[in-house]
């Protein structure tokens, strides 16, 4: 599978019709998703014949991109009914030969008790995700004190996967994530630095400002691996 070819397949994916800002449902573009999946496969060989999971799967862009590299089994988790409905439609459309399952669950709720998900832990090899950047306030109290939503996603991914977690984060959080990774006995590396388009939002009514120039933010494509 060539990179360009993958990107053009991914153009067929239906995205959010009405993205929910409080869930930070930003669109992962086919361009970004194809590069991410391509690099994970070519540089690290972390997709083929592996068990994959994605938290905040949204409309399925990353999981479908990864499916072209034949994982054994993929699980997508999302809190939002509308996103999952579109995602299921996309999965059906692509007629993927690798099995993909979806569940509706809240990462914040999963994190409350470890026993909620211990049966899942270590069944998965790799997580590929684009979690909320944590620009909206979605903090919770966990055993590990307050964690921003971006770190909650990383935490659950690190506990699900025995091998690697690939995730997109605002570059300004890099040093903080490095510290967190160390606490979790993981090694963090920056695979690449990207620019991400965030639509502009009116701070008074929280609505998207139409035709406003989109804001580019600096984002890190990170790889976290467990230190054995």
């Amino acid at each position: 599978m060539k990179l360009k070819e993958l990107e053009s397949h991914l153009q067929e994916i239906e995205t959010f019709t009405d993205p929910k800002l409080y869930l930070e449902q930003y669109i992962t573009t086919p361009h970004l998703a194809s590069q991410i999946a391509f690099n994970i496969d070519k540089i690290y060989d972390d997709i083929h014949s592996k068990n994959l999971c994605e938290f905040g799967i949204g409309t399925g862009m990353l999981t479908i991109a990864c499916s072209f590299f034949e994982p054994s089994y993929s699980l997508g988790v999302d809190i939002d009914t509308d996103a999952l409905a579109i995602c299921q439609k996309n999965l059906d459309y692509f007629e993927l030969e690798n099995p993909v399952d979806l569940i509706q669950a809240d990462v914040k709720q999963l994190l409350l008790k470890k026993e909620n998900y211990e049966k899942f832990s270590n069944l998965f090899d790799t997580c590929v995700m684009n979690p909320p950047f944590g620009t909206k306030n979605q903090r919770i109290e966990t055993e590990e004190k307050q964690l921003g939503i971006d770190i909650q996603f990383l935490k659950i991914a690190s506990e699900f996967c025995s091998n690697s977690v690939y995730s997109l984060h605002k570059s300004v959080t890099r040093e903080y994530i490095k510290i967190k990774a160390k606490q979790w006995n993981m090694k963090m590396e920056v695979v690449s630095e990207l620019k991400y388009n965030i639509p502009k939002v009116d701070s008074r009514n929280k609505k998207l400002i139409k035709d406003a120039k989109e804001k580019d933010i600096a984002v890190d494509f990170l790889r976290l691996t467990h230190i054995i």
Partner: peptide, 12 residues
């Protein structure tokens, strides 16, 4: 799928 069912609990 049943692989997924195998992991689900209501422990929450």
């Amino acid at each position: 799928k049943l692989i997924t069912h195998n992991m689900l609990t209501s422990k929450i």
